[in-house]
């Protein structure tokens, strides 16, 4: 960044970071963000660069939960979900305790409560449908006998077990994905010995899915504006052509990407800028997770 670029040119202004903030942290519309900057100078408050929306934006927030090592968080999440899944039907105290723990982790991680609840609620329609029929599998029926009969108690306990476990398990993944930048999760998986083929796939899914979604969206908009009242089956057949068009473009893009990677010295591995390091906070996280898991699975 040379000195002759003036503020107002759309270029980042080289002002010192706000007091009390980390070198890479900055404030946007009342939110403190932190992420690796690709421009060499420290950037001012209103600096110009793209920011992901929704989930991506939340992973940039600065909090003690965001600072935890991704490996600790991934392993912790899996241990917790395993305990939830293997637990006998949960008692109210267990459910509320675990839920409170997850929500407080979300609160420390500055995730909006409504966002966490809304994302976790996604699982309820699927889980609810299966749960509704669980009493049937236990030998009851949905008639009065099933609702209130001799065996109904067991059936409804099974329904509660399905619903509560599905909801809690999803809340765990929502807190994990909301407080960990995707690149760090991929880095964590890599150091947890996930095969390199998968690491490459995750990186590309992260980088290019939105590109193709945007392309697909614009193709659909074009279709809608040219043929607003097309019969449904013809529209689906056209979707096939849109997908085919997208495939050919993706194929060419893939070849270009590979060439660009070769130009930049690609030799089979995908390096990342994120560094990992376990700290006392990660040990604390593991301790809390293990205690909670033991309580849920054994109580």
């Amino acid at each position: 960044m040379s000195a002759d670029i003036r503020p107002g040119d759309g270029a980042p202004t080289a002002t010192p970071p706000a007091p009390g903030l980390h070198r890479d942290a900055h404030e946007h519309n009342g939110e403190v963000h932190r992420h690796v900057h690709h421009h060499p100078e420290r950037a001012g408050p209103g600096h110009d660069h793209g920011h992901g929306q929704g989930l991506e934006r939340l992973t940039y927030l600065v909090s003690p939960i965001h600072d935890l090592d991704p490996r600790a968080k991934i392993v912790g999440a899996i241990v917790l979900i395993l305990a939830i899944v293997l637990s006998p039907p949960m008692r109210a105290a267990e459910f509320i305790g675990l839920w409170a723990l997850l929500l407080s982790a979300a609160a420390i991680g500055r995730l909006p409560l409504r966002w966490v609840l809304a994302r976790a609620a996604v699982v309820l329609p699927v889980a609810g449908t299966i749960a509704l029929f669980a009493p049937l599998a236990r030998g009851g029926s949905l008639s009065v006998g099933g609702v209130a009969g001799a065996y109904a108690g067991g059936g409804w306990v099974a329904a509660w077990a399905i619903l509560s476990k599905a909801f809690l398990a999803v809340t765990v993944t929502v807190v994990l994905s909301g407080t960990t930048p995707t690149s760090k999760i991929i880095r964590g998986l890599e150091s947890l010995r996930v095969p390199d083929v998968f690491i490459a796939l995750f990186s590309f899914l992260y980088r290019y899915t939105d590109v193709f979604r945007a392309q697909l969206r614009s193709l659909r908009t074009a279709l809608e504006s040219r043929a607003p009242s097309m019969p449904r089956v013809r529209r689906w057949r056209l979707y096939g052509n849109l997908a085919g068009n997208l495939f050919l473009r993706a194929y060419d893009r893939g070849e270009r990407i590979h060439q660009a990677m070769l130009c930049r010295g690609f030799s089979g591995s995908l390096p990342t800028a994120d560094t990992l390091g376990l700290s006392a906070a990660d040990a604390l996280l593991m301790l809390v997770v293990l205690l909670a898991a033991a309580a849920v699975a054994l109580y």
Partner: peptide, 24 residues
């Protein structure tokens, strides 16, 4: 080869994007 692998990864992203297509 590495080239095919990159291609496969890009097509994975495409398959994921195509999951946006939903039919009533």
């Amino acid at each position: 080869t590495d080239g095919r692998l990159v291609l496969m990864a890009v097509l994975a992203a495409l398959v994921f994007a195509l999951q946006m297509l939903n039919f009533p």
